[in-house]
C-alpha cells in the first residue's frame, strides 16, 4: 500500500488505541455522569478488581459465588464507528520546508489511524473533502478496508478551496451519534468557523480527534526578501517584505494554535499538530499517548 508500508506498520503494531476505554471509564474532567444515563450497556466480561475501580461496578453476585472481587465491563455499541475525515483542499498540497507535501503526511496519518482502529476491532470509514465531501467510504470492520482506503487516497488529488465548516456540517448528518471522528486537516482558514463546527460535532457526543498537519514554513515563515504570496486555494495575492512580517506572523500563528489548543482541550477534543519535517511515527505515538491520559 502506498501510505502504509511495512515500516510504518511495524511502528503501529506497538501502539494500542485505547480510547474506547475512556468512554467506558469516563475519566474526563467536566464530564457529567449523567451521560451514563441512557447509555445502553451490554455486559461484555468480568475482570478482577484493582484498587481504584469504582465500587459501583462490582458484581456482588460473582463475589458471593467466588468470594473474590470482580468488576463488570461493558461493551458499548457493537462497534464504534470511526470516521476519518481527510482534508483534500488545495492548501494540503503545499510543501515548504518539509519532506513531503502536507497531503502525503495527512494520508499517512489517516492510514495509520485507520489501521489502529481496524486492528482494535472497530469500524473505520473515510471521507475526503474540500468544498464539499468528495469520496466517502462507509465504515467497515474488515482489514480489507485499509486497501480500499489506500486506493481512494491515492486517487485523490488535493485541490480546490477549503470550506471545512460547511463540509463538516454536511457530513454531520451522515454520521451516527457517538462515533469517533478523526479529522486530518491543516486547519488553515477561518479559525472561528472551524471551531464552531467542531463544537457542533462535540455537542453531538462524538469523540473527536483532530490531527493538524502543517509544514514548518507555515509555522516559522523562514522565507526572505520581498515576496508575492499567492494562495493555493483562492489565488488571492499578498505582497510584502517577509523579513518585516515574520515576527508578527509567528505571533499570529502561535495565537491561532493556542486558540485551537485551548478550545479543543477544553472540550475534550484531542488535538495534535504534526509537522511534515518530523517523523510522523513518533509524533503519532506521542499524540496518542497523550490522548490516552485524558
Amino acid at each position: 500500500m502506498r501510505y502504509l508500508d511495512s515500516v510504518g506498520l511495524a511502528k503501529l503494531k506497538n501502539i494500542r488505541l485505547r480510547l474506547r476505554r475512556h468512554l467506558v471509564e469516563g475519566h474526563i474532567t467536566g464530564r457529567h455522569r449523567s451521560l451514563r444515563k441512557g447509555f445502553s450497556q451490554e455486559f461484555a466480561q468480568h475482570r478482577s478488581y484493582v484498587l481504584g475501580d469504582e465500587l459501583k461496578r462490582l458484581d456482588w453476585k460473582v463475589y458471593a459465588r467466588k468470594d473474590r472481587f470482580y468488576v463488570k465491563e461493558f461493551q458499548e455499541e457493537k462497534s464504534l464507528k470511526t470516521y476519518l475525515l481527510t482534508d483534500a483542499s488545495g492548501s494540503m498540497s503545499y510543501r515548504g520546508g518539509g519532506k513531503e507535501p502536507k497531503w502525503e503526511t495527512a494520508c499517512r496519518l489517516t492510514m495509520a489511524m485507520a489501521y489502529l482502529v481496524l486492528s482494535g476491532g472497530d469500524a473505520a470509514g473515510l471521507a475526503t473533502f474540500d468544498t464539499e465531501p468528495r469520496a466517502f467510504l462507509a465504515p467497515r470492520q474488515s482489514l480489507a478496508q485499509l486497501r480500499l482506503m489506500d486506493e481512494q487516497l491515492s486517487r485523490t488529488r488535493p485541490g480546490g478551496e477549503t470550506d471545512l465548516g460547511g463540509v463538516l456540517r454536511r457530513v454531520v448528518g451522515r454520521i451516527p451519534r457517538r462515533s469517533m471522528i478523526v479529522l486530518v486537516s491543516d486547519l488553515l482558514g477561518d479559525a472561528r468557523r472551524i471551531l464552531d463546527t467542531v463544537k457542533a460535532f462535540h455537542a453531538r457526543r462524538h469523540r473527536i480527534l483532530v490531527l493538524q498537519v502543517l509544514d514548518p514554513v507555515e509555522r516559522d515563515l523562514d522565507l526572505d526578501g520581498p515576496v508575492l504570496f499567492e494562495g493555493m486555494e483562492d489565488r488571492s495575492q499578498l505582497r510584502c517584505e517577509v523579513g518585516l512580517l515574520r515576527r508578527s506572523y509567528r505571533e499570529a500563528f502561535e495565537l491561532q494554535q493556542r486558540l485551537y489548543q485551548a478550545s479543543f482541550s477544553g472540550r475534550g477534543i484531542h488535538f495534535g499538530t504534526f509537522y511534515t519535517d518530523a517523523p510522523w511515527g513518533q509524533a503519532l505515538t506521542r499524540f496518542l499517548a497523550l490522548a490516552d491520559m485524558r
Binding site: 479559525a191 515576496v227 499567492e230
Partner: peptide, 14 residues
C-alpha cells in the same frame, strides 16, 4: 519584482 510564492493559506499572513 517580488518573487511569487505559492502559499497554502493567506489568512494568517493577512
Amino acid at each position: 519584482r517580488a518573487r511569487r510564492v505559492l502559499f497554502s493559506d493567506l489568512t494568517l499572513l493577512r
